[in-house]
Design a protein around this nucleic acid. Structure first.
Length: 421
RNA sequence: GUGGGUGUCGUCAAGUGGUUAAGACACAGGAUUGUGAUUCCUGCAUGCGUGGGUUCAAAUCCCACCAUCCACCCCA
């Protein structure tokens, strides 16, 4: 137990960290190009934020949050998602008073108490972006476009963009009633969870996995048919924007999203390649979330993208990550005097920007060369009594298997030159 | 929360109640005190997820727990 990370958590070990650095670097660069500024919010918030933001009827709030009282008696929750904290910070710092829109991006851990399986962890990580301050579907299109470009850039082929409109406080209640009217005659045939949802959140019944209910729901009224004029126009607008950018999508009227704050636009990038956890990126518009948590009327739209699922998909697509940087020069030593000379040299070379290594396990010469090869070192230099006396060393090119004779005093310069640094 | 699979060295893996738990890879050392391969030799689990139990005898059977994987649910 002491030697196992908690259930549903993972160490990211040195062997795989370059994969993370790679996607993080790409994401950051893309944020710069698209004008998104990074925001870092705490990893925990007042529980109330998520109750209000995510919504009290959602699974996330009802059974998945890591919630505890701190020593000051405050109810604290480890963030289960990235949008609510971003909205809180946006409001707290009165960012709405600045020139709009406000375009934010972040990378954050998220915590949800769930049973782990493929592509699902208790601590996982998300990239996210948010655009505040405009109701225009241009923003929605930009956000979706960002996600698509990023997934493209990561070499992911087998994903599909699905979009829907979930309406607004104007039209959604009417639709809910229509849906309940439709379901009511079949109420007794519904599963237990669906019965509960009938009252709390009937739209969630639409994405049921039960075959019987799927069949039943086939003829149910769809939100898209009940949209108010404003929402309908917005949805058409969005589709026109996506068409104009040549972004392919399918309208999936059953996308509901498990977070209550969404209005109008809802979208997901789904994949067939990573088991049952098929959504790699999900997002949408939230026109009343800022108000909901006590800010002014400011609309927003954004997405969250699961980094672990992204990595899974990249593997699935055979993505070739760039190799980690090799060691520039390895210093093999023999004898106590040479050891110290090696130590001094290694330090000097490191200070001038080279990646230098030496053996610190007292290996024999053969072992040192083997280790140098293992480290993928470009060059290896051998230093013993003779070299120190003569002031000349053999610098071995490990790939070409050739040796260069170099004055010891010129070693750093010679290595730098040969590496073209 | 529900259901199913799996748990033997760092990794892969044999073993299905009976002497000191195969083998491979990896790792370390050596084969005339200075160079990455190959070859050869040597070393490397008093212990088989943990704890109980059955038995003369258990990695092998039973029970519980834990971990892990997969699916449901839900989502990233």
């Amino acid at each position: 137990m002491l030697t196992a990370a908690p259930k549903g958590t993972k160490d990211i070990m040195p062997e795989e960290i370059h994969r993370w650095h790679f996607v993080e670097g790409k994401f950051r660069r893309m944020c710069e190009n698209y004008g998104y500024k990074e925001i870092r919010t705490p990893d925990f918030e007042h529980t109330e934020l998520f109750l209000r933001g995510v919504g009290g009827t959602t699974d996330i709030v009802q059974k998945e949050m890591y919630t505890f009282d701190d020593h000051g008696g405050r109810s604290i929750t480890l963030k289960p998602e990235g949008t609510s904290p971003a909205v809180r910070a946006f409001t707290e710092h009165k960012t709405f008073a600045n020139v709009q829109p406000t375009k934010l991006c972040y990378e954050t851990p998220c915590f949800r108490y769930e049973k782990p399986q493929a592509g699902r962890l208790r601590q996982f990580h998300q990239f996210g972006i948010e655009v505040f301050g405009t109701p225009d579907m241009l923003a929605d299109a930009e956000v979706i476009c960002f996600a698509k470009d990023f997934l493209d850039e990561m070499g992911i082929k087998n994903v599909q963009l699905e979009i829907n409109s979930v309406g607004c406080p104007e039209c959604r209640p009417k639709y809910r009633e229509a849906l309940k009217d439709f379901l009511r005659p079949h109420y007794d045939e519904l599963s237990e969870t669906s019965k509960t949802r009938f009252e709390t959140n009937p739209m969630r019944i639409l994405d049921t996995k039960s075959e019987f209910e799927q069949e039943l729901v086939k003829d149910a009224p769809m939100m898209v048919d009940y949209l108010c004029d404003d929402c309908r126009a917005a949805f058409e607008d969005l589709k026109a924007n996506l068409d104009a950018m040549g972004i392919e999508y399918v309208v999936n009227p059953k996308i509901v999203r498990g977070l209550d704050y969404y209005t109008k636009t809802a979208f997901e990038f789904v994949s067939t390649g990573i088991g049952a956890q098929s959504t790699v990126c999900g997002g949408g518009r939230y026109d009343h979330l800022v108000e909901e948590i006590g800010g002014p009327e400011v609309p927003g739209v954004g997405f969250g993208l699961g980094i672990e699922r992204l990595l899974l998909l990249m593997d699935e697509n055979g993505f070739q990550f760039p190799e980690p940087e090799p060691v520039d020069v390895f210093i093999a030593v023999m004898g106590d005097e040479a050891k110290r000379e090696g130590l001094r040299l290694m330090h000097e070379m490191r200070l001038s920007g080279l990646h230098a290594e030496m053996d610190i396990l007292s290996r024999k010469v053969k072992g040192q060369f083997k280790y140098a090869a293992r480290l993928n070192s470009r060059f290896t230099v051998m230093i013993g009594e003779d070299e120190i006396k003569g002031g000349v060393v053999q610098l071995k090119d490990m790939d070409a298997h050739e040796q260069h004779e170099v004055p010891l005093s010129q070693l750093k310069e010679k290595v730098t030159e040969l590496l073209g640094k």
